[in-house]
C-alpha cells in the first residue's frame, strides 16, 4: 500500500473531499486486487478506503482512532446492506460477471475432493471451455462439469472465455453418459455468455450439439443438479442445464440471450444492454417467481467473491442436501418428474 503521506502531494488533494476519496479508493482497490469494486459499489469502496487509511494512521500511537474505525466499519456494513438490498437487474448482471466471481475451478478446489479431470469429446478436441471430471462431495462420488471462463488472459484464451463449442457439449454429454452408466449423480455449473458463434463451431454443428444434450439430459438415468453460478445465457447455457433440480446463486443470471445480444437485436444498439436487462427477467428472484428454478442459494454480503469461504460452505451444504434428497427417488420417478416439470414450462 502506498504511504498516505504521498497523497498529500497529489494535485487537487483536499482532505476529506470527494476527489480525494475516490482517488484514494481507486488507489486502494488498484493495490488490493482481491477487492475489485463495481461502479455502483463506489460509496462502499470509498468508505473502505477511509477505514484502511485510518488503520494505517492508527499505527501512530499519538492518536487513538479505533472507535472511529469501528464506527466506520459499522457504517460500511449498513451501507453495503443498503446497496445490496435494492440491486437493479443490471447491477446483478455485473455481479454475475464479476472477474473475481468463483468459477467451477474454485468450487473444485474448495468443496470437492479426489477430483480427476476427464478430457476430450473422443472425436475432435480436449474442449477446455467446459471442465469435467469425477469428484467427491463428502462421501458421495459424483460427476461434475461446467463452463470455465478463465482467470488470467492466457487461461481466458485457452478456455475461449467459457463459450463452449460443439465438441465441448459433446464432451459434457460423454461424461454425463459415463455418470449414467455408473449411477453417479451429476452436478453442472453454468457460467457462460453463450455458445460460441464461430465458423468452426457452425461447421461442426453447434445447433445439433446443443439439441442433442437437451434431448439426452431429459432421459439420463441418474440424478442431475444444475447450478447457475454466474451467467447463464442462451441455449449455450441450457445445453448443460436440464435436470432434476435447478439452483441459482443469489446474484447469478439466467436468460435467453445476453443483455447485449438482446439490445443489439431489439434496440439495434448494444449500449442499451442496461435497458434490456431491466425487462428480460434474468435475476434469480424473478426466475424463481416464474417457477423455473427450485432454490436460490444466498451469497455472502457483497457477493460470492467478497467471502469465498462462506460462499463455498453454503453452496456445499445445499448441493449435499440435494444429492441426499434425490437419492430417495427411483430413477423412474426422477425421469417422470423431470419430464413433466419441463413439459409444464410456459403454461403458468
Amino acid at each position: 500500500m502506498a504511504p498516505v503521506a504521498q497523497l498529500d502531494r497529489v494535485p487537487g488533494y483536499e482532505p476529506g473531499g470527494r476527489e480525494f476519496e475516490s482517488l484514494r479508493a481507486r488507489q486502494f482497490y488498484g493495490l488490493n486486487m482481491d477487492k475489485k469494486f463495481l461502479d455502483f459499489e463506489q460509496p462502499i469502496a470509498e468508505l473502505q478506503a477511509k477505514i484502511e487509511e485510518l488503520r494505517f494512521v492508527g499505527d501512530d500511537k499519538t492518536l487513538n482512532i479505533n472507535d472511529e474505525i469501528k464506527r466506520l466499519e459499522k457504517k460500511c456494513t449498513l451501507l453495503t446492506k443498503k446497496v445490496f438490498s435494492n440491486l437493479t437487474p443490471w447491477q446483478v448482471t455485473q455481479l454475475a460477471r464479476h472477474p473475481q466471481r468463483p468459477y467451477i475451478s474454485d468450487y473444485i478446489e474448495h468443496i470437492f475432493t479426489d477430483f480427476h479431470e476427464l478430457h476430450g469429446d473422443r472425436h475432435y478436441s480436449d474442449s477446455p471451455e467446459i471442465i469435467a471430471g469425477l469428484a467427491k462431495l463428502d462421501e458421495h462420488s459424483v460427476v461434475i462439469l461446467g463452463n470455465q471462463k478463465g482467470k488470467s488472459t492466457a487461461e481466458k484464451i485457452k478456455r475461449n472465455f467459457g463459450m463452449a463449442k460443439p465438441e465441448s457439449y459433446r464432451k459434457a454429454l460423454r461424461v454425463m453418459k459415463l455418470a449414467e452408466k455408473f449411477n453417479l449423480p451429476i452436478i453442472t455449473f453454468i457460467d457462460t455468455a453463450g455458445a460460441y458463434a464461430g465458423i468452426g463451431a457452425e461447421e461442426r454443428n453447434q445447433s445439433e450439439a446443443i439439441a442433442r444434450n437437451l434431448f439426452e439430459m431429459i432421459a439420463l438415468e441418474t440424478p442431475i443438479i444444475c447450478f447457475v453460478s454466474g451467467e447463464g445465457a442462451s441455449g449455450g447455457a441450457l445445453a448443460i442445464g436440464v435436470g432434476d433440480r435447478m439452483l441459482m446463486l443469489e446474484y447469478s443470471i439466467f436468460s435467453v440471450i445476453t443483455p447485449e445480444g438482446c439490445a443489439s437485436i431489439l434496440w439495434k444498439d448494444v449500449a442499451k444492454a442496461k435497458d434490456a436487462s431491466s425487462v428480460m427477467g434474468l435475476t434469480a428472484s424473478r426466475i424463481k417467481e416464474l417457477g423455473f428454478i427450485d432454490e436460490i442459494i444466498p451469497e455472502p454480503m457483497g457477493g460470492a467473491h467478497r467471502n469465498i469461504p462462506q460462499n463455498m460452505r453454503t453452496v456445499k451444504e445445499r448441493l449435499l442436501s440435494f444429492i441426499v434428497e434425490l437419492k430417495d427417488y427411483s430413477i423412474a420417478e426422477l425421469l417422470e418428474d423431470r419430464t413433466e416439470k419441463i413439459l409444464q414450462y410456459g403454461l403458468k
Partner: peptide, 22 residues
C-alpha cells in the same frame, strides 16, 4: 427463441426436446 419472453422462451427448447424424447 422469442426474446420478448426471456427465459420462458429459452426453456421451450428443453420442452420441445422433452416431448420429442417421448
Amino acid at each position: 427463441a422469442r426474446m420478448q419472453e426471456g427465459v420462458i422462451s429459452l426453456f421451450q427448447m428443453a420442452k420441445t426436446s422433452a416431448i420429442l424424447k417421448k
